[in-house]
Computed example of a mutant assay.
Amino acid sequence: MPDPKPSAQPVEFAPWVDPKAAPLISFRGVTKRFGDFTAIDNLYLDIFQREFFALLGPSGCGKTTLMRMLAGFENATEGTILLEGQNIGAVPPNKRAVNMMFQSYALFPHLTVWDNIAFGLKRSDMPKDQIPARVEDMLRLVQMQKFAKRKPHQISGGQRQRVALARSLAKAPKLLLLDEPLGALDKKLREETQFELMEIQEKTGTTFVIVTHDQEEAMTVASRIAVMDHGKLIQVDTPPVIYEAPKSVYVADFLGDVTVIEGRANRVGDIYEVSWAEGQPPLRCASPLTLAPDQSCFVAVRPEKVEIHADRPEDENVLQGKIVDIGYLGNLSTYHVQLANGQIIKAQNFNTERDTRRRFTWEEDVWVNWTVRCAILLER
Rank of each mutant, 00 (worst) to 15 (best):
K187D: 03
A347G: 13
R68C: 03
I242L: 09
K174Q: 11
E244D: 10
I225C: 10
L169Q: 10
V221R: 05
N75S: 10
L377W: 07
N116H: 13
L233K: 04
M1Y: 08
E84Q: 02
Q343Y: 02
T65A: 14
N116S: 09
A166K: 00
I200K: 12
S26I: 03
P303E: 03
G157F: 04
V258P: 02
R96W: 00
L165F: 02
K346W: 02
G263D: 03
S59Y: 06
L107S: 05
R284N: 11
D294W: 05
V249Q: 01
Q201W: 04
Q161W: 12
K5G: 14
T193V: 14
V372M: 15
V258L: 08
S124E: 08
F53H: 00
L339T: 05
P2F: 11
E363P: 10
L291H: 02
V163Y: 06
R50N: 06
R302P: 02
C374E: 14
A106G: 07
T290S: 15
F102G: 15
K247C: 06
T112A: 04
T77N: 14
T77S: 12
R96A: 07
L165A: 10
P58M: 13
T80A: 04
H336T: 08
Q161V: 05
A14N: 04
S7G: 04
V274Y: 01
M219Y: 12
W367Y: 09
G85N: 03
E180A: 00
A340T: 12
E353K: 05
N42D: 12
T193N: 13
D315C: 11
L165G: 03
G205K: 04
L185Y: 08
F254P: 08
P109T: 05
V249R: 02
H153Q: 02
R224H: 07
G120S: 06
A277D: 08
I344N: 09
N116G: 10
E364K: 13
Q194E: 13
F48N: 09
L24Y: 10
L121D: 08
W16C: 08
N99F: 07
S168W: 00
R150K: 12
A106K: 00
K174G: 01
Q194P: 07
S333V: 15
S168E: 00
R33H: 09
T193F: 11
A76T: 00
D365G: 09
